[in-house]
């Protein structure tokens, strides 16, 4: 990330503060670089078993088995999506029944009135005819929930992150596998953690400034 880190990550601000407060330029964490999926999985298992909590792996593609190796719990995204879809179903039915089968005002909430749409001898509440729109709105709201839920849970968009300062990290989207242990982890110790990472035989170890 030679260019983009300086643009997307604001390197100027921390530097200016560095000589004001000694603690400003503090350690974000240690980053170890690995060459293959097998190595990152093995390393993740070690770090997990050592009891670390604030750490992450960065890979160019989802590595099979890494979730288990890291001990990541299943996401609650599907639950959110279920309720998103349910909202779509209810909203679509209410919309169609109110606008096509009822003639009363919602003036207390908003100035709109429904209309008894009597057409081709069908009953007012023609549920079968209302199904296609109900289905489409269910899928629409569920899909929007997937997308925005994914961004929300992942904390994206976040254009700046300490890992982007590393030159090596540009290869996390190409062919290298990184493991980052954050300094805020209660078990973190600059020397002990570094020794543990060193034992995993990484290609490199880098200290990241926050």
């Amino acid at each position: 990330m030679s260019d983009s880190s300086s643009i997307l990550g604001s390197t100027a601000a921390p530097d200016r503060e560095a000589h004001l407060t000694p603690a400003a330029n503090k350690l974000y964490g240690l980053m170890a670089e690995f060459e293959s999926p097998a190595q990152i999985v093995a390393a993740a298992e070690k770090v997990r078993d050592a009891g670390y909590r604030w750490w992450d792996c960065h890979t160019p593609f989802p590595v099979h088995g890494l979730d288990q190796a890291m001990g990541i719990r299943a996401t609650i995204l599907p639950v959110l999506v279920f309720f998103g879809g349910l909202t779509g179903t209810i909203a679509a039915l209410v919309l169609q029944i109110f606008t096509n089968a009822m003639s009363f005002d919602l003036w207390a909430i908003v100035w709109v009135r429904g209309y008894d749409y009597f057409i081709s001898g069908k009953p007012m509440n023609s549920l079968p005819a209302f199904i296609p729109v109900t289905f489409e709105l269910t899928v629409l709201l569920a899909s929007l929930t997937v997308f925005f839920g994914l961004l929300l849970l992942n904390g994206l968009p976040r254009l700046y992150h300490p890992v982007f300062k590393s030159q090596r990290f540009a290869r996390a989207s190409d062919d290298r596998f990184f493991l980052v242990i954050e300094a805020k982890d209660p078990q973190f110790s600059r020397t002990k953690t570094e020794a543990m990472l060193q034992a995993l035989k990484p290609l490199s170890i880098e200290a990241l400034d926050s």
Partner: peptide, 30 residues
Amino acid sequence: LGWRGSNRHWHRYERAYLLLAALATPLVLS
């Protein structure tokens, strides 16, 4: 969007992709 290949992100990403596929399948037929 600041994607950094985090495996905690990949985990949700894979699930999101599966959910979108499951939603898009009946959608495309409909």
